[in-house]
Design a protein around this nucleic acid. Sequence first.
DNA 1: CAGTGAGCGAGCTTCCGCTTGACTT
Length: 774
Amino acid sequence: MQENLVIVESPAKAKTIEKFLGKDFFVTSSMGHIRDLEKKDFGIDIQNNFTPKYEITSDKKKLVTELKKLAKDAKTIWLASDEDREGEAISWHLIETLHLDPQKTKRIVFHEITKEAILHAIQNPRPLDLNLVNAQQARRVLDRIVGFEVSPVLWKKVKPSLSAGRVQSVAVRLIVEREREIMNFNTTSSYRVTANFLVPEKDGKVVELKAELNKRFDTREQAFSFLEKCKSAEFQIDDVVKRPSKRSPAPPFTTSTLQQEASRKLGYSVSQTMTVAQKLYESGKITYMRTDSVNLSGLAINTAKQVILSTMGEKYHQVRQYKTKSKGAQEAHEAIRPTYLDQEEISGTAQEKRLYELIWKRTVASQMSDAELEKTTVTIDISNSAEKFIATGEVLIFDGFLKVYIESVDDEDQNGGQKGLLPALTAKQILRWDKIFATERFTQKPPRYTEASLVKKLEEQGIGRPSTYAPTITTIQNRGYVVKEDREGVERGFTEFVLAGQKIAEKQKIEVTGAEKSKLFPTDIGMVVNDFLMRYFDLIMDYNFTAKVEKEFDEIAEGELIWNEMLGNFYKPFHSKVESAINEAERANGVRVLGIDPNTGLELSVKIGRFGPIAQLGEATEEGAKPQFASLRAGQHIETITLDEALELFKLPRTLGDYEGKTVVVAIGRFGPYVRHDGKFISLEKKVDDPYSIELPRAIELIESKREKDLNALLKVFDENPDLKILNGRWGPYISYKKGNYKIPKNTDATKLTLDDCMKLIDGQSTVKKSRKK
DNA sequence: CAGTGAGCGAGCTTCCGCTTGACTT
């Protein structure tokens, strides 16, 4: 018989708390929610005031039985789930499901896992907040309604198995709209002028001073004539201004900022970061990793102080209390920080060590003093024109928090002034120059989202929660709406004029632009679904939709709004949109007419087909004419493919002729260009063969060489059963029999196997099933 | 492993937030 049973949400938390509470308390966890709306059905009785139909989640059945037993035996049950909407609901579900006696049940809350906070909580239990619970029910029911009413519309009008939801559909919208911005972006160029001045130092050395003109020129003529004028100009320093400036450390990590920095600094994906953080949390090394709070406990602030004082000195320390600003933050936890700040390093995998180090540095830096800088701006007059050259430099006077941690940014600024110290300069000083450049520069397209920058954007809009950022990003990729890809850049020429001595030289240079690494691209289906949802469900797709309903959930939590009424108000207009979409919407296939094929006069269009995007040439007619189809290639998209590119698709497959009485065909498949002959596929050689121009002799060459390779791979055949072969593959010998492959145990001489041995091996192994789930 | 593109229309798919394992060709 246990006196006290405490139920928290996570087992790692339970372990920690148990240490603080002593042996009269048994602490266990619910592992999050134990009940949810019915999984199979809609789970809501709409007619009956939106009554939810709950069931115990399938993987919690065993746990619930255990909890029931523990609760029966305990004198007092302390419900210690988080103090937010979801946490309150978890406690309520526990009361309902475990049939807890109100007389012996107490609700407690704490925001940090420290002895002080927990003992204080035990002394101050409070009643369950039913308004907060109802706010959660409203949130849950609304999400189910949106997801389960809109998704089936997509199955009908676009493709089976698709999904829509309050969070995921808006995430896809962000990516689609960004892609279209990039597509429609009008790149322009202008000329940026920079000068290298030569400044003599006291010791006789000459140092370079780089300066940039305060104006860019739109045309090459303007840039050129400016350089012409520079030939005879005098350059004189107008002013040297020194200005102190400060930089402050970033606040401690939340889930979202941890994901961003781990992505930028360590190259982790969002879900990778969460998996590693989970490990650190479970082994007690960091505090809880799903949080939107930047708050540090008093204990942590004190330990940070000790660490900073003892290792860096008082000058480096500054106490800071951070306030969370992000929309919809619920602050049930602390910020993410090391549990023991005096541990600068930990044991663990390389990934764990690196993430820990990042968290440690960020946390310590957040309690450190500002960095002090001095910025110098030098203005240089040009005797024969109104423009001025500007040189900037930045010197670190005191490093402060920068000693430990520098936050990264997403889009690195590529030009900028000279960093570091400028040479000693005085006003009115005349400057001699070495070279002056006028370089053509282009306007930058908006950047594509990375997983982490998408999370940042979602958080800014108050969409999604710390526990769902990673799963949301996975979902939109699993549904095929978005792909994470690298993209090779393309070469772009630009002009540079160099003035040296009294001569201007013009150079044509080449740079690579548009290269992308691990960026999110919308797919064709993502765009079609997005456009469909925008047209028929504008309310759900509104970036402010979540913020609007969140406001109402808050009102419910405050007792100012009845949750079923709120849902009623939402449901009526929403459901009629669902109805009209089902009844009125055409099938959406994203069809786009590219033009007329000049050879046949037939119309060429692209659309989403049953197996993905296809091009279609001609229409089916009553006279029996049939259209031709061709799949789009990887990297080609409905929105961007041109008529010429689409026409190319119909040039394959090409029949090259006959070889040994069988036709030879060349085409492009999933794994690239190939030749097909006698039921066999032979890949073309990369960068050597071109499927559009390859001729029969070369194809025969490929067929023959493939035959030779296969022959070399053939270790043994049996005349009695020609279906069975022993082959030598990439991983050593194996048995091939009727389209199935079978392993040969290690250390057996494959060539000595008899037919009987082989059949035994085959019987012993079940063919590897080829069902692969997405 | 690489083709398909019309169609009987079974039975299935789907949301967001809380939380961990179990599972991996």
